[in-house]
């Protein structure tokens, strides 16, 4: 059974963003999710940063301070090997959730 809740979806969005972009700061993650979802999804900063720190503690991502293109210091996050595995599981789990939801909605 799929174990995807709201939190799991947020984690999935963040993990996927980092796997698509390589290395990114929090602000960039918000922008990327917005753009990549055709403006349909917007991640709240209030959930994003606690999630990033939680994921770093779990060892899914690691972070380091670096300069942005405009020479500003920002904390960049990057997937670890554990994070990559976690992403695969989260994607699988999400597919199942969607399938389950579809089936549920079509049930008559």
């Amino acid at each position: 059974m799929a174990k995807t809740d709201i939190q799991g979806t947020l984690d999935l969005l963040i993990l996927k963003t980092l796997s698509q972009t390589g290395e990114l700061h929090g602000y960039g993650i918000v922008l990327h999710i917005q753009t990549a979802s055709a403006e349909l999804l917007r991640v709240e900063e209030g959930s994003l940063y606690p999630a990033l720190h939680r994921m770093e503690q779990k060892g899914w991502v690691n972070s380091q301070w670096a300069l942005t293109e405009t020479n500003r210091k920002a904390k960049y996050y990057k997937l670890t090997a554990v994070g990559r595995k976690q992403l695969q599981e989260a994607e699988k789990s999400f597919e199942q959730l969607v399938k389950g939801l579809r089936a549920m909605l079509r049930y008559a």
């Binding site: 700061h25 929090g26 602000y27 900063e45 940063y49 720190h53 942005t68 405009t70 500003r72 210091k73 920002a74 904390k75």
Partner: peptide, 14 residues
């Protein structure tokens, strides 16, 4: 944490 959040706001401002 302070610096990280502040950087976010500054990028939005720019």
């Amino acid at each position: 944490i302070d610096d990280e959040l502040q950087a976010h706001i500054e990028m939005q401002v720019s």
